[in-house]
């Protein structure tokens, strides 16, 4: 129960932050990416603002091995830079720029995004369904060292 409450609180803060910061407005995201147009620096402030509490949380994490609800803390991050990380991030970036939506804001704007958002979401879910297959293929093409 405590875990569900924490999940709801974390999700609520995330949704409220995405909404207040204007990140569900696709013009603000595209404005940040569009350095040759009317450049909009808002996204940098959002990222910067988010880094502050998160960096503090990682510092606290160093002194704890389990979370408040008893679940283990995530392990140290992998250092492996592989083709999947690069290819996936490039694909994501192009999609992100095309419409100005990433997964978080697509959920935050669920109540006011309209039919365009639903089309995007349906395609995103479809993409997530076929991704495991592509991932397996990439693993076969480039065997892990």
């Amino acid at each position: 129960m405590a875990r569900l409450l924490i999940a709801f609180l974390a999700g609520g803060l995330f949704g409220a932050g995405l909404f207040i910061s204007g990140m569900t407005d696709t013009t603000k995201v595209q404005g940040w990416l569009d350095v040759f147009g009317a450049w909009d620096p808002t996204l940098a402030f959002v990222m910067g603002g988010a880094m502050i509490p998160m960096a503090i949380a990682w510092m606290i994490r160093r002194r704890r091995t389990i979370s408040l609800t008893g679940l283990p803390m995530p392990p140290a991050p992998s250092k492996e830079i592989d083709g999947k990380l690069i290819l996936g991030s490039v694909m994501f970036g192009i999609g992100w720029g095309l419409v100005g939506l990433c997964p978080g804001p697509s959920i935050a704007s669920l109540s006011y995004g309209g039919p365009g958002l639903y089309a995007f979401l349906a395609a995103m879910i479809g993409g997530m369904l076929i991704a495991p297959m592509l991932r397996a293929r990439l693993d076969r093409a480039v065997p892990a060292a």
Binding site: A7, K28, G48
Partner: peptide
């Protein structure tokens, strides 16, 4: 807009902090 961005960003980061320290995720 930048100020709202900063405030919203801090809320997003706080959500991440709650999820990490609360549920280890």
């Amino acid at each position: 807009d930048w100020i709202w961005g900063l405030i919203g960003g801090m809320l997003i980061g706080t959500g991440g902090a709650v999820y990490l320290l609360g549920n280890g995720r």
